[in-house]
């Protein structure tokens, strides 16, 4: 989680073992995650893809400690999440995890600077000025710090959210469809920055997306279907991702049609 750690480091930021999540009970039970085994090395930019209902959001929520597994385990930087209390999980979210959501990412009553330092303020920690300046400069937010979210464009808001996710130097940044509400140019800008964060700062990132173009910024893609990892791809490009998705969809159709 240090900015100096090498992208090729072999330490593991995220590890799941037989991660299983069931919603509901009895006849109405839905198996959202079905014994998922996943390891994300520190510094990796991972994209999780899959069709709607494939379990990709559930996986993200369980990894980030927002949701709890029914069975199996999740470890963040070697810490198992299952035994943690709500308070421990909250403290983990403050320092070990960064979030970027699709929309409604900022607190409307706080200006951009306050939104960025929010996790540190909540934890009562001091802001690392140099680190803050570097993130803000990289994201091109220096002249927007005194603005309220309502005075920022959608792209600017997501960049503020990205800065907030990075400011506490978390073990992992989780991004849930971060470009879903953005236009193409703003989306590309944000993804470029996430790529940069992984490359330059060694930031581990787990991003859920259904957009092949967005996924192509990642180091690695895992494809989810019906709660299981069905495929993986390293050093992807957009066309290859698209092809893989098509073939997966066909597989699924075959499977369900059979």
């Amino acid at each position: 989680m240090s900015s100096t750690s090498s992208p090729t480091s072999t330490t593991t930021a995220v590890r799941t073992r037989s991660a299983t999540r069931v919603y509901g009970e009895g006849d109405t039970a839905v198996l959202a995650l079905d014994a998922v085994d996943l390891e994300v090395p520190t510094g990796q930019f991972l994209a999780v893809m899959g069709p709607s209902g494939s379990g990709k959001s559930t996986l993200l929520h369980c990894l980030a400690g927002l949701d709890r597994l029914s069975q199996g385990s999740v470890e963040l930087a070697g810490t198992a999440l299952e035994p943690l209390s709500d308070k421990d999980l909250t403290h983990l979210r403050r320092s070990g995890v960064g979030f970027i959501f699709q929309s409604y990412n900022l607190v409307p009553t706080l200006d951009a600077r306050e939104n960025i330092t929010l996790p540190l303020d909540l934890a009562g920690r001091d802001v690392d000025g140099a680190w803050f300046d570097r993130i803000v400069a990289t994201l091109g937010l220096a002249d927007r710090l005194d603005h309220r979210p309502a005075q920022l464009s959608g792209g600017q808001q997501q960049r503020v959210a990205a800065a907030r996710a990075l400011v506490s130097r978390p073990t992992v940044v989780f991004a849930d469809e971060p470009t879903g509400a953005l236009d193409t140019a703003s989306g590309a800008e944000l993804l470029g920055f996430l790529r940069q964060a992984a490359t330059e700062f060694g930031q581990t990132i787990v991003m859920v997306t259904h957009d092949p173009a967005a996924a192509s910024y990642a180091d690695r893609i895992v494809f989810l279907a019906d709660g299981r990892i069905v495929s993986e791809m390293l050093e992807p490009d957009a066309d290859a991702v698209l092809d893989r998705m098509k073939s997966l969809e066909t597989d699924v159709q075959h499977a369900t049609g059979a």
């Binding site: 927002l66 709500d86 909250t90 409604y104 996790p119 909540l122």
Partner: peptide, 16 residues
């Protein structure tokens, strides 16, 4: 609801 959820997600504890 969403705003408080967001605050909780980025590290606000119940007491806060």
């Amino acid at each position: 609801t969403r705003e408080i959820g967001l605050l909780r997600a980025v590290g606000m504890d119940r007491g806060q």
